[in-house]
Design a protein around this nucleic acid. Structure first.
Lengths: 210, 210
DNA sequence: CTAACAGACGGAACGCCGTTACGCAACCAT
DNA sequence: ATGGTTGCGTAACGGCGTTCCGTCTGTTAG
């Protein structure tokens, strides 16, 4: 007896698309009204479909991880695990620089409303698994005995820190110096983490080798 | 002829103190009204003294760097530059974990109103200089030829990334695994960055040493 | 064919935010 | 004492997140 329902999953995706357009344009005016207007609907629809603004941002957050995972899956596997690992890290860096605001939503918290929980970061599990797998290949290639999970988490976190610094303009002034420091940090880490020696021994060796 | 002025620098500091108390308590309701009320004054005073809310957050931002610099200056200089460097990085980590919301204001952007510029990060210059100086000592100690500034920037950015990951709960679940990964990442980096070899040669050496 | 009803829609309303304008109050010179 | 000048807090404004309700739709019973 009632009228046909329009607030379906299709409209939800339309709202999410409109929100992503605003975010990707770097526009800070991500409000319930602007998103609803851009999607050709009303705030009532947005609140029925997403619960509240935090729900909308959470959807953006999840879609960001989905996009990231999609890019990482496209990274080809070559005969050099080391090369592939660098490619993954650089793909992540390029993705973040292409969508800085999406990067912030995923890794900083530019909107007070949404505070990601451990559950939310669970969407990154597939990504972590992929990185961990490639770390395993890398360790096999170099014959080292480091812990795959430790190394994967470190690489992801360090990359995130370097990217955040680059986006904030505090890693360096010129692109040349930024690139040099990113390369130096990542290659140094990959070198050290794939030798299979515990860091204390490395430290001694490094100190004594001088 | 007018009445005595109360909106002085003293009241400005009182407002900043009240704002810091709210921030350090992890309270997300940092509004003009709550801060003014806590400081026993009105929003008019806040706006006369700080211009707008972004000005207040900028003041918090700057005070955060002042606190950080103060802590770093207290790190003693021992006969091991390596030990001192670890101490600085750990001091930064402890500071961030003690005041996670202050860390976010300094390194993420939890309030849309304030977007730090390169000028704002200029307050970190003293900190960078201090870290760079200690890197110089470290390089001298190990006899390596790396670039002080490159290494200082890298250490700061990587540390920030690891801390952000730790605070977000994505570096690891248990404190033990988090500490292990932090130690592994930082010691590996310090090892590799102080050997004086360009990373490509390190890579070859690391690969062939297996 | 029509009327009544179930319920989905959107706009209007509420409280809170950042911000500003204004009326009252306080002080000093006369 | 008094008037004028200036500083103060409050109240108002537009916009936000969020909710609620009047309207309108589409079906179905008679």
């Amino acid at each position: 007896m009632p009228r046909k329902k329009m607030r379906t999953v299709a409209l939800e995706q339309q709202l999410l698309r409109s929100a992503l357009e605003i975010v990707e344009a770097g526009d800070r005016t991500l409000t319930a009204r602007t998103v609803a207007l851009a999607a050709g609907t009303s705030t009532g629809a947005l609140y029925e479909l997403f619960g509240d603004k935090a729900g909308l941002i959470k959807a953006i957050f999840h879609d960001g991880f989905r996009q990231w995972a999609e890019l990482l899956e496209q990274v080809p596997t070559t005969n050099s695990a080391r090369h592939d690992m660098i490619a993954m890290l650089q793909t992540t860096r390029t993705f973040s620089k292409t969508n800085p605001m999406l990067f912030e939503i995923m890794f900083a918290r530019p909107f007070v409303e949404f505070q990601p929980t451990a559950d939310d970061y669970g969407v990154a599990k597939g990504i972590y698994a992929g990185v961990t797998r490639r770390v395993g290949r890398l360790l096999a290639e170099t014959g080292s005995t480091g812990d795959q999970i430790d190394i994967a988490r470190i690489l992801i976190s360090v990359n995130r820190g370097l990217i955040a610094a680059e986006l904030g303009g505090i890693l360096g002034a010129s692109q040349k110096s930024i690139d040099r420091r990113w390369d130096l940090a990542m290659n140094t880490l990959l070198d050290g983490l794939t030798t299979g020696l515990p860091p204390s021994k490395q430290a001694k060796r490094a100190t004594r080798s001088v």
